[in-house]
Amino acid sequence: MTASPRPNRGPGAAADNRAALIRAARNVFAENGFEAPMTSIARTAGVGQGVLYRHFPTRESLALAVFDENITEIEAIADDPAATVDDILTAVVEQITTSAAFIAMIDPTSTEDVRLFEAAWRMINLITVKLEDPGLRGSLRGDITTADVILAISMLAAILTKTEPQSREATSRQAWRLLSRGLTG
């Protein structure tokens, strides 16, 4: 017995389909890594591959959409005038731990996609603004720069790209605890 096809909701479903694809990509990438089959993402989102490729013609464009959502979440935290660098880093570490797309995109030098550079700069600027205000540095030492923070985040991301998904959370906690000691003194 074959399943009956879903009714075509037409162009009105585009925004819902896009949101479903981003959610599905976040989950599938987290469970299976950045190289997970695109068919798995379409299936998880409940759409056909044509819909997937109409919204996201490449794996990188889909990962960028996930990355952009992650940055938007971090920007919402940073918008709180009392938010410190510690608050931002907590969110970044959590996202790196759960989102393989975020891990894959943490190094914008790995692509020529201008949109990735722009998204990465958004995150770098958030950290820079907080570091420039002594009251918002949180527990970070006074000599720590934005480049130091990005290096620590990149080191964590590099470790987690080589870590099996089921071990990622424990490895992330341990690695970030060690890296934090260097940032806080």
Rank of each mutant, 00 (worst) to 15 (best):
L116F: 06
R43K: 14
A158G: 14
F34K: 09
V85I: 05
V28M: 01
R18D: 09
G138M: 07
R177C: 00
A24H: 01
F102H: 09
R141Q: 12
R181K: 05
A45E: 10
A100Q: 07
I127E: 00
T39G: 15
V92H: 00
R54S: 15
P81F: 04
H55M: 06
E31I: 04
N32R: 11
A30P: 02
T97N: 03
L156I: 11
P7Y: 07
Y53V: 08
A42Y: 14
L62T: 04
L156W: 00
D79M: 15
T97Y: 00
M1N: 08
V66Q: 03
T58N: 04
E169G: 07
M123R: 14
V47G: 06
S61P: 01
I153D: 07
E118H: 15
E35S: 12
A91W: 03
R26S: 10
L116A: 13
A13P: 02
I96Y: 01
R122C: 07
P57C: 15
G182L: 02
A15I: 08
G182E: 01
V51Y: 11
V114L: 15
A3P: 04
R173D: 01
R181D: 02
L178V: 02
N125L: 15
N32P: 08
A91N: 02
V149N: 05
T111D: 01
A157Y: 05
V85Q: 03
D80E: 13
D107A: 14
L151C: 13
P5R: 04
L136D: 02
M38I: 12
N8G: 10
T90H: 10
Y53T: 06
F56G: 05
T111W: 12
W176I: 02
I88T: 00
I41E: 07
Y53N: 07
I153W: 08
E75N: 01
I103F: 09
A15C: 07
S61Q: 14
I77K: 06
L21H: 06
R168K: 12
R18P: 00
W176Q: 05
R168A: 07
A42R: 14
L136C: 12
S4L: 14
L140S: 06
L21R: 09
P57I: 14
S167H: 05
Q166M: 08
E112F: 13
A101W: 05
G48S: 09
I103Y: 03
E73T: 06
R177Y: 01
I74N: 00
T128L: 13
W121K: 14
S172Q: 00
P7R: 09
N32S: 12
N17I: 10
M105A: 02
T171L: 10
W176M: 04
V114A: 15
D79L: 15
A120D: 07
V66R: 03
A78N: 03
E73R: 13
A42V: 11
S180P: 10
